[in-house]
Amino acid sequence: MTAHDAIDMSTSAPVGAGRRTDRAPIPDDKEMLRAAVELTRDIATARPEIYWPDMLASAAIGYGALAGAILLDNPWAAAASGVVAALALYRALLFIHELTHIHRDALPGFRFAWNLLVGIPVLIPSFMYEGVHTLHHARTRYGTIEDPEYLPLALMKPWSLPWFILVSLLLPPALLLRSAVLVPLGAVIPPLRRLVWERFSSLSINPAFRRRPPEGDFARMVFWQELGAALWALTLLASTIWLGWRPLAIALVVVAGTAVLNQIRTLVAHLWENEGETMTVTAQYLDSVNVPPPALLTPFWAPVGLRYHATHHLLPSVPYHALGEAHRRLAAHLGAQSTFERASYPGLFPLVARLARSTMRGG
């Protein structure tokens, strides 16, 4: 959810990339691309017996733990419950990434159920990612000014990285403001409606991105999701009259925790070293990151298959539960010295350190 990630957190993203002109274009590794297709044909189908229990259990654990964080008197127990809530809801929220890639008929009812149970309650309905994330995977858009999910972070100033993380704390109040105030006002003020849609309706980090108006069936889906999110946001604000601000404040803190987790994951999802040029598929793969086993903490900060983010860029239609097997097959077939292995890294902290060193050199 890349997110992250906020009401277009790109509006606060750092800008001012430096120049890096010492890189020759990377040609496509045709053997790797061919193997990626041929070795994964039999595992490219989304399995409902995995998707449904995973999403439902994550949501149930998240909301149960959130209730504990609100209701428990012991502050340590409440804090621990809040951490569990943030981790579980983070996993549940990241199914929004799967919704952008699976075929619309692959999992009947899954999109509706996810929006009803997760997207609308957290004020991140699926339209905020659908139709946006696919642009990030477009062959001629990745890493360019037209990519909503790309910034050359490795070429920016060193202070850009902590700012990139801290700005995600604005996600919960931003989402609440968007759905409870801006969307209802936009219903009667067309210029505001256009502004909200263009700038504050996508999970993007590129401040130059402007979203095009929705059309057809997608526009109808947006209408109902916006209506549901607006009614829920107004209900949350109204609840403070009877319950006070404490329950809502705790919920906002938990959502902020999921936002920070997603922003950290986004920070190391790519190397962020492209300066805006069109890249080959292999170059896009090498600018992306895999953190395969034995890294133990990766399932917590990169769940739902996102530890195999580079492999996902090779095979965007392969469902999350098959990415591990796809990665193992390709690694075994192509070998330890292959282009494929060059996108694998040992863990979160080495990636953050690499990115920080790059900003110190290039920024």
Rank of each mutant, 00 (worst) to 15 (best):
A3L: 08
A3Q: 06
A6W: 02
M9A: 11
A13L: 05
P14C: 04
P14W: 08
R23C: 08
P27G: 09
R34C: 12
L39V: 12
T40K: 04
D42S: 14
P48F: 02
W52I: 00
P53N: 05
A59R: 00
I61K: 06
G62M: 03
L66C: 11
I70Y: 11
A77C: 12
A77S: 14
A78Y: 11
A78H: 12
V83K: 07
A88L: 04
A88C: 06
L89A: 05
I96S: 08
F110T: 03
F110E: 05
A113V: 15
L117F: 10
E130V: 07
V132S: 07
H136P: 03
R139M: 09
T140S: 07
T144Y: 13
E146T: 12
L151A: 04
M156H: 03
W159F: 14
L161Q: 10
P162C: 12
P162R: 14
W163C: 15
W163I: 14
I165S: 13
L177E: 02
S179H: 07
L185R: 06
R193K: 14
V196I: 13
P213W: 04
E215G: 08
F218W: 14
F218M: 12
R220C: 11
M221E: 15
Q225I: 05
G228D: 06
A230I: 00
L231D: 02
L234Y: 03
T235M: 07
T235P: 00
G244P: 07
W245S: 15
P247R: 11
P247D: 15
A249E: 07
A249Q: 11
I250Q: 05
A251S: 15
G257Y: 03
A259N: 08
V260K: 02
L261Q: 07
L267S: 13
L267A: 13
L271N: 01
N274R: 02
E275Q: 09
G276E: 05
T278F: 00
A283Q: 12
V289E: 07
P292S: 13
A295K: 09
W301S: 10
T311C: 10
L314V: 06
H321I: 04
H321Y: 04
L323N: 01
G324E: 08
E325N: 02
A326Y: 00
L330C: 01
S338M: 07
A343S: 09
L348N: 03
V352K: 00
A353V: 04
A356N: 10
S358M: 13
R361I: 12
G363W: 06
